[in-house]
Design a binder for these strands. Sequence first.
RNA 1: GUCCCCGUCGUCUAGAGGCCCAGGACGCUGGCCUUUCAAGCCGGUAACACGGGUUCGAAUCCCGUCGGGGACACCA
Length: 479
Amino acid sequence: MAPVPRVRFAPSPTGYLHIGGARTALFNYLYAKRHGGVFILRIEDTDQERSTPESVKAILDGLTWLGIDWDEGPGKEGPVAPYFQTQRLELYKKYADQLIAEGKAYRCYCTREEIDARRAAVEKATGKPGTYKYEGTCRDRKDIPEGRSAVIRFRMPEGEGQVTFNDKVLGPITKQYSDLDDWVMMRADGIPLYNYGCVIDDRTMDITLVGRGQEHVNSTFPQLMLYQAFGWKPPEFAHFPLILGPDREKLSKRKHPEADVMLHKRNGVLAEALSNYVIRLGWSHGNDEVISREQMVEWFDFDHVGTTSGVWSPDKLMWLNQQWLKMLPPAVVAEQLVNFLAARDVQVKAGDPRLERVVMAFRERAKTLQEMADMALKYFQHGVALDEKAATKHLTAESKPLLTQVREQVAALPQWSAAALDEVVKKVSEQAGVGMGKVAQPVRVAATGGTVSPGIGETLELLGREETLHRLDAALARP
RNA sequence: GUCCCCGUCGUCUAGAGGCCCAGGACGCUGGCCUUUCAAGCCGGUAACACGGGUUCGAAUCCCGUCGGGGACACCA
């Protein structure tokens, strides 16, 4: 009987939720849901300088917005709590002591300055960066130098050897011992470093599979050494391809503003669309493009996670967003549109019947809620400014009599509906013996100020009788 | 530089030896529809990095070259 899969997302709270992190979270989440497992959120806040409570909140908010809810983690204390690394310090100490007692780790009294100097010397001598490896100065040190604090280093086994693991995405990957060194597990103040804290937590939280970005494949090896030293069976590993910016470098907060999940929310992207887009970057299910959360849960697997990094494409995100704008129930979209209208000083109460009509009218024209709000703006305002060019072209001496007819007939309409309004335009143009455009365009310009809008009946219906008549009159009154 | 990973249309990808002179999607583009703009529908554009093997047969397997990315901290 296989144990219940337990996976985790372990962000460090040093900023907003990153797109790459969001996808890592989503992959893990889907894997858990798919296999009836548990999705754990662990906060790796051991970087004292950079971790902030605001970042924790930002990450939680981002995940929540995307509909990625955790089974255990902050606010959802479970059997292996706590879920903040800074609250698990005794654990790290306990296991470090054990390793030291067994001679598999040791205290190192070299100061940071000494190490830095030696590294600089080596790199200067070889002329190559990244070639420094800790010499093992304190490996067999017996004395305890006065006035010096000690970090704890892992003791790499001597001699030939290699570490291998079978990645669920990449396949077997191997590293020679000789490429590793005695890395620092814990600082003098008892705060663990990533590779150490990560292993202790994954172990003590009963994680069965570690899914993370490919930037972590190299850190898997020292981590594996630790499992070996403790005699623990390591979890499975799955490394996901990176997401690249337009410059083909790893999407980073520094260089790529689009790395911010919530920026997209602010831009009017739907959570459904963003997660749909992001999951297709690095994973596929045949030719399917528009994928619901339910389908993701049903279909997700590591077999179809790709091995190659993907480039962020705003075009496709926009296309997907519109697909979702059209697929979601109008009421759902309307609810979100309210905020975007409010930001434009249009106060509409959620549930206002006009909202859903706006959504239906503009979801085929807008790619984002942002655009939709811009387009919808003038339908909620009183009166409209006429675009000069459009007015000059369409509000002419020839068109005005037609406009007047339309005005009279719609005023008398018993039912203010798009169909009835369209019928009026049709009738007027037929009677005048002109094409529909000859009537519809002047009406459109009068009603919206410009030449572009949804179907004319739809447009007038949206405006309402009172506002329509007001605008038609205003246009007619124009010299 | 060292180590690790990767290499199918501009981009995201399907493809697990013959179904592929390579399919879908975005983008771009021609047309249809049409009261405008969209949306929709139909069509076009464009790729297996290169060179060697293995095999009756390779985008798919192996090797090399080149190219790209990632990691090389008392960050995560």
